[in-house]
Nucleic acid binder design. Sequence first.
DNA 1: TATGAATGAGGATTCATTCAT
DNA 2: TATGAATGAATCCTCATTCAT
Lengths: 224, 224, 224, 224
Amino acid sequence: MNVPEPKPLPRWARRKDARPEEIIAAALELFVERGYASTRLDDVAAHAGVSKGTLYLYFENKEELFKAVVRGNMLPVLQHGEDLVQAFSGSSADLVRQLVRGWWELTGSTRIAGIPKLVIAESGNFPDLAKFYYDEVIQRALSMFRDVLQRGVDSGEFREVDNDHLVHVALAPLVMLAVWGHSFGCCEREKLQPARYLDAYLDMLLHSLQLAQAQEKMHARTKK
Amino acid sequence: MNVPEPKPLPRWARRKDARPEEIIAAALELFVERGYASTRLDDVAAHAGVSKGTLYLYFENKEELFKAVVRGNMLPVLQHGEDLVQAFSGSSADLVRQLVRGWWELTGSTRIAGIPKLVIAESGNFPDLAKFYYDEVIQRALSMFRDVLQRGVDSGEFREVDNDHLVHVALAPLVMLAVWGHSFGCCEREKLQPARYLDAYLDMLLHSLQLAQAQEKMHARTKK
Amino acid sequence: MNVPEPKPLPRWARRKDARPEEIIAAALELFVERGYASTRLDDVAAHAGVSKGTLYLYFENKEELFKAVVRGNMLPVLQHGEDLVQAFSGSSADLVRQLVRGWWELTGSTRIAGIPKLVIAESGNFPDLAKFYYDEVIQRALSMFRDVLQRGVDSGEFREVDNDHLVHVALAPLVMLAVWGHSFGCCEREKLQPARYLDAYLDMLLHSLQLAQAQEKMHARTKK
Amino acid sequence: MNVPEPKPLPRWARRKDARPEEIIAAALELFVERGYASTRLDDVAAHAGVSKGTLYLYFENKEELFKAVVRGNMLPVLQHGEDLVQAFSGSSADLVRQLVRGWWELTGSTRIAGIPKLVIAESGNFPDLAKFYYDEVIQRALSMFRDVLQRGVDSGEFREVDNDHLVHVALAPLVMLAVWGHSFGCCEREKLQPARYLDAYLDMLLHSLQLAQAQEKMHARTKK
DNA sequence: TATGAATGAGGATTCATTCAT
DNA sequence: TATGAATGAATCCTCATTCAT
C-alpha cells in the first residue's frame, strides 16, 4: 500500500467507472427535491454532466435508475447499523441511544433522509421497488431493532413487551422524522429540532421499556 | 291535476348539489389507489359517472380537485376528535385510548387513511396544499394531542414531559399506521394487525407517561 | 303621437323583442375586444344578461351570431352614406369631405370601427361571411365612392382617372384607419390623430384629383 | 480507406441547422392559409416533415413559432427596401415607384403577403407580437417612406406636406393590397389586378405630391 | 321562451425512450 | 462508449353545443 500506484489511469477512464455513481448521485438529489414523476431525465443527465442517452447505457429506464438510487443509498446505512449492533457491548439502552443518534447523524443532514418519503410516495407505482424496500430495508431494520430490544429483555434491562408490534411502533417516529423534513418541514414557523425530537423519542421509548424498579430510579434521576 | 304531485325533485338540480361530493369520492378512491400523477381525470370522471367536462364545472383543475379531496375528508375527522376531547370526562389515559382507537375505527378501514401518504407524497409539488394541511390538519391534531397530554399532567395522572416535542413523537406512529397500509402493507407476508399495533402503541405511550408510583401498579396489573 | 300608448307592454314582453339586439350588442363588444376565436359564448351571454341557452334561441350558432353582428352594424352605416350622397347638392370635393368625415364621426369612436378588422381576420374561416361582406358592404362602398368620383369627373371638377382601381386605393386608407385603432393603435407612443390623418388623406386624395388649372388655384390657396 | 471520404455531412447535424427554417416555412404556409387559431401544430409538423415533438425542440410553443414566422419573414423584406433607398440615386418619384413595385414583386406572389393580415388579426391576442411588429416593421417602414418623401421635398420635386400623417395614409393602400389578397380577394368575380391597382396608387400619390408647375406638365403628358 | 347542467371532440404540450452517428 | 435529435403516446383542459326541465 505504500507503493505508489503506477500510472494512475487517465482521467477519462476513471470517470468511466465513476459514471453510474455520479448519475445515481445526481438522480438522488433531483428525486428527493422534486419527486419521481416531476424529475426529468434531461435534468438528471445535465446534473450528472452527461447526455441523456448515456443514462440508458447504465440504467435500463427511469424506474431502474430510481431503484438503483434507493438500493445504493439505503443498504450502506443499514449495514452500518448492523455493524454497530454486532460490535456493541454496553447497556441496551445505550445501544438504542447510539443507534438512533448515530443514524440521524449519518443521514439526517443528507439527501438520503429523503428516500423514505420517496419510496412511500412511489410504492404504489412500483410494487417491486416496494417489495425490495420492504425486504431489504424495512425488514432488516425491524429485525435489527427487534434484536436490540430482545437483548434488553434478555439481559433483564427492559420489561417484556409485544416485541413484534412494538418495533413497528418504535421505528415509526424515526421514519417520520426523516419524512417530516421532506414534506411539512418547510411549512413550520419554528422548525422542529431533530435533536430535541430524538431526546423526547428516546425518553419515551426507554421510559416505556424500563422495569418497574428501574423506573423508580430513572424517575428519581430525572427529577434530580 | 289538482292533486299536488309529490313533486319529483328536478333530476338535475338535485344532482348539482350531489355532484361535487360524488366527484370527490371518486377522486379520493383513485388518488389513494394510484397517486396523484398517475390518476387520470378521465378515470375520475368515469368513476363518478360523469363526463370529463363536468369535472371542470366543479373544480378549476386537477390540483384544486386534489385539494378538495384532502380538505373535504380530513376536516370532519379532526372535528370529530376535537368534539370527543371537548366532551370527555374520564381519565386522560382513557381519553387517549378512546381518541386513538376511535380515530382508527372511523378512518382505518376507509380510503381516508390513504390521505396522509398522498399529502406527504405531493407536499413538494403543491406547497400550498402542504401549508394548508400543516395548518389545518397537523397543527390542529398536534394541538389537540398536546392538550390531552397536558390535561393528564395537570390532573397528576401523567408525568411532566417535553410536551412540544413529545406530541410530534406520539403522533408519528399513528400517521405511520395509516401510511403503512398504503405503502408497504401489501408487501407483508403476515399483515400488520392494526389493533395489536395500536395496543402496543398505547401500551408504550401510556407506560412512558405514568408516574413512578402508578407505574408499579400498572406493572403489577400487566403481570397479572 | 300625442295619444298615450295604451297599455305599454309589460316589461318582459318588451325585453323579449329587444333580446336579439341586446345579444348582438354584447357580442359586438366582445368580438371587437377579443376577436372571434377568443370570445366565449358564456361571456356573451353574461354580457347580454341572458343564459347561454338563450343565445341559441335567437342564433343558430356562434358563426351565425357573428354574421348577425356584422350585418346588423354595417348595413345602417352604409345606408347612411348612400343617403348622404343621394341628397347632396354641393361640390364633389365637399361631398367627399363630408362623406369621409361623417363616416368617422358616426363610427370612429364606436365599436363598429372594430368590425373591418374582425371580418378581415375571420374571412378565411368564414368564406360566406366574407362573401356577404364583400357583396353587401365592400361592393356597395366601392360603388358609392365610384359614383362620387364619377360625379366629380362628370361635372368637370376632377380629372379623369382609372376609377375602378382608384376607388380601391382611395378607400384603403379609410379602412386602415379603422383597422389601426384595433390593432397597432395601442402600441403607439404618440397616438395617431384621426382628424389629422383624415386631413392628410383628403388633402392627398383631392389634390390628386384636381384638374391642372384647379391645381394652381388650390396651390395658391394653400400657400396663402 | 486512406482516401478521405468526401465526408458525407452527418445527416442530422445538417438537418438541425435546416429544421427551424423548414418549420417556419411550413408554419408560414399554414398560418397564412388558415389563421393562427385554426392551424394545428400537428399539421405544421406534418407539413415540415417532422413529428409534433420536434417542433418543441426549436420553438417554445405555438406563440413563439408564430412570432418566429413573422420576424423571420418580414425583417428581410424591410432590409431590402432600406438598402434600395440607401443606394438609389434617381428622382424621388422613381424611387417611390421602384420601392413600391419592387416590394410587390418581391412579396406579392409570396405567402409573405399574408403576414400583415395575420398580425392584424392576432394583434389583440399577442400584444408583444403587435409591439414587435409596430416597432420593427411598421415604424421602420413609416420611417423609410417618410425619408423618401422628405428627400423629394428637399430636392424640390415634391410639394410640402404633413409628412408625419401622410406616410400613414400613403402606406395604407399598400398594406391593404396585401391584406386584400388574403381576405376578400377570393370573393371577387373580376380579380383585382395588383399591377393596375399599384398604377392607380402611384398615379394618385405622385399626382398629389407634384408641385403646381410640374402638375401642368404631368397633366399635359397624361392627356397626350 | 328560458335555463344551465352536461357533454365530448379537439388540440397544445410534455417527456421517456430510441437510434443513427 | 457517448451523443442528442427525433419521436409519439399520453393527458390536461377548453368551449361550442345540446337538451331535460
